[in-house]
Simulated scan of single mutants.
Amino acid sequence: MTSTCRPGRAWIITPALRAGRFEGAQNCGAAVAVVDIEDSVALRDKQTARTACEAFFALPDPTCTRGIRINSLTTLDGIKDIAALAAYTHRPDLILVPKVESPRDIELTAASLDTDGYTPDIWALIESPRAFNNLPGIMRAPRLGGVVFGSADYAASVGCGLSWEALRYTRSSLINAATAADIPAIDAPTWELHNPDTLRRDAELAKELGFYGKGCVHPRHVEVINEVFTPTAEELSQARAIVAAADASGGSVTTVNGQMRGTPFFNAARALIADADRTS
């Protein structure tokens, strides 16, 4: 069965070899904290990182979902990562599998790690042209919990820029496929660390497009992401007005504040309220 877990809006990722950042990452307000042993770790340091990051999951009283980004399962390091995770005393809640291009990557992760007492949430990092060509198949993986957009790797592979316009089609394709599969999609981080206006703009565009949340690589980004993706009091008030109008009209087309509203608007308003109630 496809996971329906939606662990949160802001995701922060921290390198496995920066143990001094572990506690801060888990307590910065992000709903998901991911320790990384893939792109942020040099090949020569993979084994060191593999061992060091278990401490990330041993910290007491976590206030967030704790995950790990392993190496691609098409590499020897990815296979070693899975073997190491199976032996951890403290295990991650979530496994982020990079370079996913086939449902087999998700199936192998589940087959290797699932036990009677442990079934981690498994997410796919979608970051290559081949992955986008294979999205329908990937989305059918039974244990897939959600998808994350890997903008940097995708842009590098096709030779395009990282601007919103350059990647709009790709993001839209991912949202469409994820929504069809009823799983959440998380947008890539904003790579400009010191420009809050750029971050806010990117987060607002991601929310408007349909992303459930957004990744980040610095704790200072978490507050903005949470703020953007949390429905405002005005948005909730408008949604409740639409639901009230729907109930009053018996589900027929009606008007709310001078705007025509019908079934699609009713459904969207109810979904917004339900999600706000679930996360409050």
Rank of each mutant, 00 (worst) to 15 (best):
Ser3Ala: 13
Cys5Glu: 13
Arg6Phe: 06
Arg6Trp: 12
Gly8Tyr: 02
Arg9Ala: 08
Ala16Pro: 07
Ala19Leu: 13
Gly20Thr: 00
Arg21Gly: 10
Gly24Asp: 12
Gln26Gly: 15
Val32Lys: 07
Val34Cys: 07
Val34His: 01
Glu38Trp: 09
Val41Ser: 10
Gln47Cys: 09
Thr51Ser: 14
Ala52Leu: 12
Cys53Phe: 14
Cys53Lys: 04
Glu54Asn: 10
Thr63Val: 13
Cys64Gly: 09
Arg66Tyr: 07
Asn71Cys: 10
Asn71Glu: 06
Leu73Thr: 03
Thr75Ile: 05
Leu76Ile: 13
Ile79Asp: 08
Ile79Glu: 12
Asp81Lys: 01
Ile82Phe: 04
Leu85Arg: 02
Ala87Glu: 15
Tyr88Glu: 01
Arg91Ser: 00
Pro92Tyr: 01
Asp93Pro: 00
Leu94His: 06
Ile95Asn: 06
Ile95Thr: 07
Leu96Asp: 03
Val97Thr: 10
Arg104Gln: 14
Asp105His: 15
Asp105Arg: 13
Asp105Thr: 07
Leu108Val: 14
Ala111Val: 07
Ala111Pro: 03
Leu113Thr: 08
Asp116Asn: 12
Asp116Leu: 12
Asp116Tyr: 08
Gly117Ala: 09
Thr119Trp: 09
Pro120Cys: 06
Pro120Phe: 01
Pro120Gly: 04
Ser128Ile: 07
Ser128Gly: 05
Pro129Ile: 00
Ala131Asp: 03
Gly137Phe: 12
Met139Cys: 14
Arg140Gly: 04
Gly146Tyr: 09
Val147His: 11
Gly150Asp: 08
Ser151Val: 09
Ser151Ile: 06
Asp153Gly: 12
Tyr154Ser: 10
Val158His: 03
Gly161Met: 05
Leu162Ile: 10
Ser163Met: 09
Glu165Trp: 05
Ala166Trp: 02
Ala166Asp: 15
Ala166Thr: 03
Leu167Gln: 14
Tyr169Ser: 13
Leu174Thr: 11
Asn176Phe: 14
Thr179Met: 12
Thr179Phe: 11
Ala180Thr: 11
Ala181Gly: 04
Asp182Ser: 14
Ala185Pro: 05
Ile186Tyr: 11
Ala188Ser: 15
Pro189Met: 04
Thr190Ile: 07
His194Ala: 14
Leu199Ser: 06
Arg200Leu: 09
Arg200Thr: 06
Ala203Glu: 08
Ala203Asp: 06
Glu208Trp: 06
Gly213Pro: 07
Lys214Ile: 09
Lys214Asp: 12
Gly215Asn: 06
Cys216Met: 08
Arg220Lys: 13
Arg220Asn: 14
Asn226Leu: 09
Glu227Ser: 15
Thr232Arg: 06
Ala233His: 04
Glu235Gln: 15
Glu235Ile: 02
Gln238Arg: 15
Ala239His: 03
Ile242Phe: 00
Ile242Cys: 01
Ala245Ser: 12
Ala246Leu: 00
Ala248Trp: 00
Ser249Cys: 01
Gly250Pro: 03
Thr255Arg: 13
Val256Ala: 05
Gly258Lys: 03
Gly262Arg: 01
Phe265Gly: 08
Phe266Tyr: 06
Phe266Ile: 00
Phe266Asn: 00
Ala269Lys: 04
Ala269Phe: 02
Arg278Cys: 05
Ser280Gln: 14
